[in-house]
């Protein structure tokens, strides 16, 4: 899922300093699961803003809302009846949700309340880690199910580099060396021969370098 994290409250307060009526909108998708932008976070953030503004003698009116998702128009459209009563929308959705909301409500200022960090997993309660950089050209079949693009700090396709030490990456003692993980896994699977095959230059055109990425499924389009 998409993992996000709330922005510092000072940053949010500065974004909305001149707003008197604010619509704070959460999302019940990924950001609810990672406790960054669900109903609960909408409540906590709204209360914090109200308190901070009251303290500054600059009260603010807030409406709290949490949509099923902000990356689908069928849910965004539900705000149509009341969105214009507010100076701005503070969205706790991921970057996609914030932008889709802005696309639908062109005359409204839509502000992000969270940073969208990565596509990852819940490692433990309260701990999320990245697993995928959405390069659009998966090679997990060749690397024991562990992604070198994501797990290696240099995204080396033929790692590890000379900085791998005792299973850790040279950049931080708490970060595992992605290629040590890959090699260990290949060994467990009895596939160490695969290590010596050179992974060729990657086609990055399916990644961030190719402009807006788009998938069209003829079988599903109306």
């Amino acid at each position: 899922m998409v993992i996000g994290e709330g922005k510092p409250i000072e940053e949010i307060l500065s974004m909305i300093s001149d707003k008197k009526k604010l619509l704070v909108v959460g999302c019940k998708g990924c950001v609810t699961v990672c406790s960054a932008g669900g109903k609960k976070e909408v409540e906590v953030l709204s209360s914090t803003i109200r308190l901070a503004r009251a303290k500054d003698n600059n009260p603010i009116e807030i409406k709290e809302e949490t949509l099923e998702r902000q990356c689908d128009t069928e849910y965004l459209v539900l705000m149509r009846g009341y969105i214009n009563n507010y100076d701005a929308v503070l969205s706790l959705a991921c970057g996609a949700g914030v932008q889709y909301c802005a696309e639908m409500y062109k005359s409204k200022i839509i502000l992000p309340a969270i940073n969208t960090n990565f596509v990852g997993v819940t490692e433990k309660q309260g701990i999320w880690t990245e697993r995928c950089q959405t390069c659009g050209n998966c090679i997990l079949d060749r690397t024991g199910g562990i992604c070198p693009i994501t797990r290696c700090a240099k995204s080396l396709l033929n790692g590890p580099c000379g900085g791998s030490s005792l299973g850790k990456c040279e950049i931080h003692k708490d970060i595992s060396c992605g290629w040590q993980l890959i090699y260990d896994r290949l060994k467990e699977l009895g596939l160490t021969d695969a290590y010596e095959e050179i992974i060729p230059l990657k086609d990055w055109s399916t990644s961030r370098d190719g402009g807006l990425r788009r998938i069209v499924r003829e079988d599903l389009t109306l």
């Binding site: 700090a153 240099k154 995204s155 080396l156 033929n158 580099c161 040279e170 050179i198």
Partner: peptide, 24 residues
């Protein structure tokens, strides 16, 4: 060479490229 990670240098906020690795 792949090169030392930018974290060690004077521009730790730089974006690394790594379009290819040393073997490539």
């Amino acid at each position: 060479l792949s090169g030392d990670h930018q974290k060690f240098g004077d521009n730790p906020k730089a974006k690394n490229v790594y379009d290819m690795d040393s073997i490539q």
